Simulated scan of single mutants.
Amino acid sequence: MRAFIFPGQGSQSVGMGSALAAASPYAREVFQEVDDALGQHLFKLMSAGPDSDLMLTENAQPAIMANAIATLRVLEREGGVRLADKADFVAGHSLGEYTALCAAGAFDLPTTARLLKLRGQAMQAAVPVGEGAMAAILGADRDKAQAIADAAAEGEVCTVANDNDPSQVVISGAKAAIERAVPLAKEMGAKRAILLPVSAPFHCPLMRPAADAMADALEKVTLQSPLVPLYANVTAAPVADPAMIASLLVEQVTGMVRWRESVLAMVAGGVHDFVELGGKVLGPMVKRTAPDATATSVVTMDDIEALLKAL
């Protein structure tokens, strides 16, 4: 069995999608459709920067999605591949969950772009700049990372945000608490902790205003049943019911991304082949979590052609 998986924030970089757009009209079509939906020249920003603008959450989220969907569109149109024929499940890391749902036909592309633009804006607005932070705890499992977060909290929000793989967990919360956690991590047995260059403390209770904004937005859009089930971030379990998916997308804004558990659950469910579209971040996480699984990251035309031979 196979899962198509889609990356989250942090996989953006200036130049993303440019080579694909130069090589395929189907990729250009996706980027134009996203530009039209947002009323901005997002692809120009993806291609040429500046990096400071692309890093903004409201731009990074739809850009990462557009790049992944363009990769899938080329695979489908030029390779004659249908997702429903080649994938048994989809999953995405944080914003990648929206990409996964778009890939599986639950959201159309313009709706996905607009939802992610709004999600980025709402997440940024939820906590004033400079009041929240995130840090990666390396060489620690989730329990150890949570113990570090608890020790650093001192009454402030500080909790596990992303359980990525057995050796990488991200914590999120009030800036002062996260800054206390960084030196504490090594003292408490982690290899090290690194402050992340993010503009807001994602996936923690401080994001409640953004969750409310997404609840309102999701009530106003059409969400179809996906062509294949989605492994949801907050449950690490498959879901196909549109109402339940919408509820989980809201919960995801403040909830933990249970990526390690999702990978293990997919493997336990029979998935042995993971294909990451539009990034090179999740594949290594999969391998660190499930060393016996196959993980392929697909970004370039050469990657697409190699995948087509393997499918």
Score class of each variant (00 low, 15 high):
190 A>C: 15
179 E>Q: 11
133 A>K: 07
178 I>A: 08
163 D>W: 00
137 I>M: 13
149 A>E: 06
190 A>D: 10
182 V>Q: 02
154 E>R: 11
163 D>A: 01
151 A>Y: 03
180 R>N: 14
180 R>K: 12
191 K>H: 14
173 G>N: 08
150 D>E: 14
146 Q>A: 04
190 A>T: 07
177 A>C: 14
169 V>M: 04
180 R>D: 12
182 V>I: 10
166 P>Q: 08
147 A>L: 05
182 V>K: 02
172 S>T: 02
152 A>S: 14
190 A>E: 13
184 L>S: 05
178 I>P: 04
178 I>C: 10
183 P>D: 09
155 G>F: 06
190 A>G: 08
148 I>W: 04
166 P>S: 11
194 I>N: 04
164 N>I: 00
189 G>M: 15
140 A>G: 10
168 Q>L: 08
158 C>P: 03
171 I>K: 01
179 E>V: 05
180 R>G: 10
136 A>K: 00
160 V>L: 15
191 K>I: 13
162 N>K: 01
165 D>H: 01
188 M>T: 08
144 K>Q: 15
157 V>K: 02
151 A>I: 05
154 E>Q: 13
148 I>K: 05
132 G>D: 12
175 K>L: 15
152 A>V: 11
176 A>C: 11
191 K>R: 15
187 E>T: 09
137 I>W: 08
157 V>P: 06
159 T>S: 06
139 G>N: 11
144 K>W: 13
161 A>S: 06
154 E>H: 10
146 Q>M: 07
194 I>C: 05
140 A>M: 09
174 A>K: 02
157 V>W: 03
175 K>N: 13
